[in-house]
């Protein structure tokens, strides 16, 4: 078979497969170059074409690398550019809202994953802040004649800090897992429009690096300090509660704190609520 005959056959087959025009051009260019290189190396035209193998193999090779979305769009083509444009304009009340909805869903999922990461760390931060407030409450209570309530606040704060310290490795693992998930999701979306080895690998065989999750590990010092804070805080809070018969509302309450022109209550206990309020 002659070179032009082979390339025309390939072009026809790729058009019949309704591949996008850019894929057809790239595929034909590749095989043209391959045949020319072999002829330059001394092969005859027929031998060079024969070494390309069957047209079906070339068609499969070029088709395999066209991503799903461009392939689907090309499949919708009528073969006439003018008719394609007219149909696209007529159908735009359908495909534009659908496209926007899909984009919205994808963006929402991606944003939700990152918001989960932020939530995890906000919870850890809140626990640390509770600890800081607890320390302040102890000094505030001692200074204002409500030491028991102050120590109760200190106990709660210490326990919360201990929990926060112990939770940091867990939060780091959760963050790592969520970030990997967000990356995989982004790669999956990108893979709909363009193919890469990582997308194919993750979708099929699964890369060990992409699927392995970090297991949390607690450095010795963190473990000791966290457990000590949790234990000490819990013990202190229980001692104070035991001293008042587990009725914190019977203890002198902490006076309000004036901050930036606002009057704030710290660790307020009311008979109608069992929750610790810190605002």
């Amino acid at each position: 078979m002659k070179k032009e005959e082979y390339l025309e056959g390939l072009r026809t087959a790729l058009r019949a497969a309704k591949l996008p025009s850019f894929a057809i051009a790239e595929g034909v260019e590749f095989y043209t170059e391959a045949i020319d290189d072999r002829m330059e190396d001394g092969a005859s035209e027929e031998d060079a074409v024969a070494q390309m193998g069957p047209l079906e193999d070339a068609l499969a090779a070029v088709s395999a690398e066209v991503p799903p979305v461009p392939r689907r769009i090309a499949h919708l083509s009528t073969g006439s550019h003018v008719l394609d444009i007219v149909l696209a304009v007529i159908a735009c009340p359908v495909w534009i809202p659908c496209t926007l909805a899909c984009v919205g869903v994808i963006a929402s999922i991606y944003l939700a994953l990152w918001l989960l990461v932020a939530t995890v760390w906000m919870l850890v931060t809140a626990a640390f802040l509770t600890g800081a407030v607890g320390v302040f409450a102890s000094f505030w209570g001692i200074a204002n004649g409500a030491p028991a309530m102050g120590f109760l606040g200190l106990g709660i704060g210490l326990a919360a800090s201990g929990i926060a310290l112990l939770a940091v490795p867990l939060a780091a693992c959760a963050t790592s897992a969520l970030v990997k998930l967000a990356e995989r999701f982004a790669r999956w979306v990108a893979g709909l429009f363009m193919k890469g080895r990582k997308e194919a690998r993750d979708a099929g065989e699964g890369s060990p690096d992409s699927t392995r999750l970090r297991t949390p590990s607690w450095p010795r010092q963190l473990l000791v300090i966290g457990l000590a804070a949790l234990g000490a805080g819990t013990l202190l809070a229980l001692m104070v509660l035991a001293s008042c018969g587990f009725d914190p509302t019977s203890l002198p309450q902490l006076p309000q704190v004036s901050l930036f022109g606002m009057q704030l209550d710290i660790f307020e206990f009311r008979r109608d609520s069992v929750m610790v309020i810190s605002r």
């Binding site: 590749f30 095989y31 193998g53 070339a58 499969a60 070029v62 080895r197 194919a200």
Partner: peptide, 18 residues
């Protein structure tokens, strides 16, 4: 290795950035 094997691999490695 043949052109039909090489083509998709070259495309993928290029898109991957390798």
């Amino acid at each position: 290795l043949s052109e039909s094997t090489l083509y998709p691999i070259l495309r993928r490695l290029a898109k991957q950035g390798a």
